[in-house]
């Protein structure tokens, strides 16, 4: 069981950062994951009084406060318009509305969980994280870093012109995913992310440029390119087994989901 000794509703991020330098301290997100653990927390740091719980649309970016609930992200009209509904699709399968009202974007991203739909989705966009100490760094870089004592203040989605599609496979509708897949054409560059491998979501590069100029290709060529890349992605991603599925099945799924996602994005499929 989780045991908490002190509970501090901080007045500033600086205060939170300072308190968090102790190893036994802990920043509270939505409490969903944290409360299941068996740990003794000396100081629980609550950021909920700092007004970091909203999505703000700015001229060139979406500023998503770390305490923004997954539900608010899911129902944010502007962000969903920007991503053609992909953000909503990436969130709506997560347990239930009440759960998503509790779980926070900061908690989901900071945890860098393997099963994370949110991480998969945001990696496909031009996403940055704002850390109190380390400042603004690309999400892709942050996702590879080890957990440290920094404080994640916000997630920034740049309004780089993009199209994106999100797909996931689940054993039941609201279970953790067996595999997640997000693809995007972001600033004209193709990006593919595969998550729940079951390891942390990873960007699959396209070094041979298979998808280069995808939208301009004639239909048959496009179909061939997408198929070729789907096979490439499945082949060049590492998968593992867990209680939800085997490595073998994940590989099969990856090819299907990557292909379908690109087919949708390429306008070959609704």
């Amino acid at each position: 069981m989780l045991k908490i000794k002190n509970y501090v509703k901080v007045k500033s991020i600086a205060e939170a950062y300072e308190l968090n330098q102790k190893k036994s301290a802990c920043v509270l997100g939505g409490m969903i994951w944290l409360k299941m653990g068996n740990r003794n927390v000396s100081t629980a740091i609550d950021l909920s009084g700092l007004g970091l719980d909203t999505v703000q649309e700015r001229e060139d970016e979406f500023h998503i406060g770390c305490m923004t609930s997954l539900r608010d992200l899911e129902t944010n009209a502007a962000l969903n318009e920007f991503t053609q509904g992909a953000v909503r699709e990436s969130l709506r399968h997560i347990v239930g509305v009440q759960f998503r009202n509790c779980a926070t974007v900061g908690g989901s991203i900071f945890g860098r969980y393997g099963f994370s739909d949110v991480l998969t989705m945001l990696l496909a966009l031009d996403t940055w994280v704002e850390l109190h100490h380390a400042g603004r760094i690309p999400l892709a870089e942050f996702a590879q870093m080890k957990k440290d004592r920094d404080i994640l203040e916000a997630v920034i989605v740049k309004k780089t012109p993009q199209q994106s599609v999100y797909l996931s496979q689940r054993n039941t509708e609201t279970d953790f995913p067996v595999l997640t897949c997000a693809v995007s054409l972001c600033g004209g560059r193709a990006r593919t992310v595969i998550g729940a491998r079951p390891g942390r979501a990873k960007i699959v590069e396209d070094p041979d440029g298979i998808l280069n100029g995808l939208t301009e290709m004639p239909e048959t060529e496009r179909t061939g390119a997408v198929q070729k890349f789907a096979e490439y992605a499945a082949e060049h991603t590492t998968f593992g087994s867990n209680m939800r599925a085997s490595e073998e099945y994940r590989k099969l799924l990856a090819e299907v989901l990557v292909r379908r996602a690109w087919e949708t994005l390429g306008g070959m499929k609704r």
Partner: peptide, 24 residues
């Protein structure tokens, strides 16, 4: 946080009371 039995409204929004620290 999977069953929904503990659902209450917090400022009109449904939340899982098992996952909300009382102090929040």
């Amino acid at each position: 946080s999977n069953c929904g039995l503990c659902t209450v409204l917090m400022d009109d929004r449904p939340v899982l009371s098992c996952s909300v620290p009382a102090l929040r």
